[in-house]
Simulated assay, not measured.
Amino acid sequence: MAPRRYGKTSLLRALGARAEELGLIAVYVNFFGVVTAADIGERIELAYEQQLCGPLARWFDGVRATLRLAGPVPASIELTDARAQQPLLERLALPRRLFEKHGKRCLIAFDEFQDTLTAHARIDAVIRSEIEQHGDAASYVFAGSQVGMMRALFTSKRRAFFAQARAVDLGPLDPSEIARFVEQRFLATSKRVGTALKPLLAFSDGHPQRAMLLAHFVWEATAPRGEATEQTWGSALERVLLVEAAEELRGAWSSLQGGERRALLAIATGQPPYARSTQRQVGGSRGGGMEHAIRSLLDAGDLVEDRGSNTGYRLADPLLAHWIREGRTGR
């Protein structure tokens, strides 16, 4: 589990590549934005179509012709009705059928898994009813960016997947690993990251996507066969803030509720969120309203707990934190 844009997809792709080296069949399915059970089934079917190759692709062409259409289900039919479940169950059963035919085990990665609940509040029970039969046929990885929802899916006794998977939280990358990777990439193109590396590492705070985004624009601002400097870093950061990520940051801010904005403003600027002085600075209440906002931000993955901070929290996105501190929210 990790916030969106934290490198989950890249990690899942790398895991799939490693699994294929070991002889498994890797299938990656992204459920981001699904609305209906039919959407879920179509995403699964499309993943097999695009990712299987050779004899397995030909096998799937034949199997696909036997699958029931995953079209819209009449409103009068509940998902608990077998007629509504069947098209989805047939697609979920593909690893079992592949194993029975070819004897090959699959590694199935379900990304943004929490979005399946948009189709139906108990869709996880339908999914489990099939994949729990897959024993030798498949292993599963469930990934998601709505941290609170993902945690509830696998830790609540009321959910179908309770205690069925081990939670793995993606934390910040080790700065030394980022440094080694960035230095190697610069050297591979006859450039040197130079003194731009230190502020890049400090600013990105281990955030995988932000570190790579900023490193790219430092590299782009470095002359051929040249060496980046702190000035190069400053220019790259300003370009990201003003151009490359400007719309993204404004969109993230505008999507928040008022209480959530006040909480992020307080924490980004180092003010204890429940202090009276903070309430005077950012407005709102320091009691239930602030507590509710922080809980919502934690569940969404926008905030993470940080016992080493005087606020008790930190923003997951260091770029957004800097943007807020600089007062760019009103620009």
Rank of each mutant, 00 (worst) to 15 (best):
Q146I: 01
I131L: 10
S277N: 10
A47K: 08
L256Y: 07
D306L: 10
Q114C: 07
V141G: 07
L214Y: 01
L320W: 04
F32Q: 09
G234N: 14
R210H: 01
R151H: 10
L46H: 12
R225K: 14
E220K: 15
Y48G: 09
F113H: 03
A228P: 13
P199Y: 15
I127A: 04
A119V: 14
E90K: 05
L24E: 09
E90R: 10
I123H: 07
A152P: 00
L265W: 07
S285I: 00
A268E: 06
C106Y: 06
A211M: 09
P172Y: 13
F217I: 01
A47N: 01
T311V: 02
Q209F: 14
I25Y: 03
I25F: 03
E227S: 10
R210A: 14
C53M: 06
Q51V: 02
W59K: 04
W323T: 05
Y28I: 01
R5M: 02
R96H: 10
L297A: 10
M290K: 13
V73R: 13
W59M: 06
A26H: 13
R225H: 09
L242P: 00
F99T: 01
A143D: 07
S296W: 00
F161K: 02
F203V: 03
S254Y: 12
E244K: 00
F186S: 00
W323D: 09
Q279S: 12
N310R: 13
K8G: 02
Y274R: 13
G270S: 03
S10V: 13
A215Y: 05
G283V: 04
F113R: 02
A300N: 02
A252F: 02
E21R: 15
H120C: 03
V141R: 06
A179G: 08
E183P: 00
A246K: 11
P224L: 09
F31K: 10
E247Q: 07
D299E: 08
R239Y: 12
R122N: 06
G289A: 15
D174R: 11
T329P: 09
I178D: 06
L15C: 06
A70Q: 04
R192M: 02
D299G: 11
A65F: 02
